[in-house]
């Protein structure tokens, strides 16, 4: 499953934020490797810096934050050095795509489901017209939306939360990314739907040969989907390992306390 050379490699990353009268170091020399075809989950409490780390991978850090040191290597490029939107457009979608946690707000309420999936296909796969539509229907059915051709012209408000999350995943897949980042993909959903979506993500990972980076604080979710787990605490990765190792043989005291708080 794992290759020796990492697909994405983060080396000694430091991210700082300018606040009103002080500079805060949020990511403090973090290193992490992501291998092709695996799914890695980053777990940690709120404020550990998970979201900041992910935002730096796609270039949407808030205005007052910047990468102070370190490298993010991807396909021979150092993403950490990217400045302009044009450079980021090469990475976003095509290489790294993202599934958001809140399916209620991640879709444009004024446009039909179909047109939103189709747009990603037109932009990233270069298909047009009828072909793009056919591909959009195929992807929608692939993420488990039955009768996608009938639901094509529906608006997001006509869909349930689980269906919308499927559409959000379909849009991310339509970009044909190498790496899919799932930021708390099931937090907003109820438990039965959660299980369905996780199952779907597992299936899609094999089908599309995806590398998935999960962000979660729900260890139950992590146990179901991840191959490897990275525990993050105060801007650093303190422990990385296989799911079983982390869950059954944790080494770091923080990991032990995190696990002991499981219900």
């Amino acid at each position: 499953m794992r290759e020796k050379k990492p697909l994405l490699s983060i080396e000694d990353l430091v991210i700082k934020f300018q606040l009103k009268d002080q500079i805060v170091e949020v990511i403090k020399g973090l290193s992490l490797n992501l291998y092709k075809g695996e799914s890695l989950a980053i777990v940690g409490e709120s404020g550990a810096g998970k979201s900041v780390l992910v935002k730096s991978l796609i270039g949407v850090l808030d205005k007052n934050g910047w990468i102070d040191a370190g490298k993010i290597l991807y396909k021979g490029m150092d993403i950490a050095k990217f400045k302009s939107e044009d450079e980021w457009l090469k990475i976003r979608g095509k290489e790294i795509a993202m599934v958001f946690q809140e399916p209620m707000t991640a879709l444009n309420p004024l446009r039909t489901i179909g047109s939103q999936v189709e747009e990603a296909i037109v932009l990233h796969q270069g298909l047009r017209g009828r072909e793009a539509r056919k591909e959009a229907i195929r992807i929608l059915e692939d993420v488990g939306i039955k009768d996608a051709d009938k639901l094509y012209k529906r608006y997001p408000h006509e869909f349930s939360g689980g269906m919308r999350q499927r559409v959000v995943i379909a849009i991310a897949l339509a970009c044909k990314p190498q790496i899919l980042i799932c930021d708390e993909p099931t937090t907003a959903l109820d438990v039965t739907i959660q299980a369905q979506i996780l199952k779907l993500l597992n299936r899609l990972q094999e089908e599309y040969n995806l590398t998935i980076l999960y962000i979660s604080h729900d260890l139950g979710v992590v146990a179901k989907v991840a191959h490897r787990v990275a525990v993050m605490y105060k801007g650093k990765i303190i422990e990385v390992g296989n799911v079983k190792d982390i869950f059954y043989r944790p080494k770091d005291p923080y990991t032990i306390s995190l696990l002991s708080k499981l219900p």
Binding site: V60, I91, G93, L107, N108, L110, R111, E119, A172, C175
Partner: peptide
């Protein structure tokens, strides 16, 4: 800054397209 516009940006939609397709209709 609604989430779907950030989402669209993150999935590699150029700015002018977001302005034209997502903002103008509003």
């Amino acid at each position: 800054d609604r989430e779907y516009n950030i989402a669209s940006r993150i999935l590699g939609t150029p700015g002018y397209r977001i302005a034209y397709k997502n903002i103008l209709p509003y």
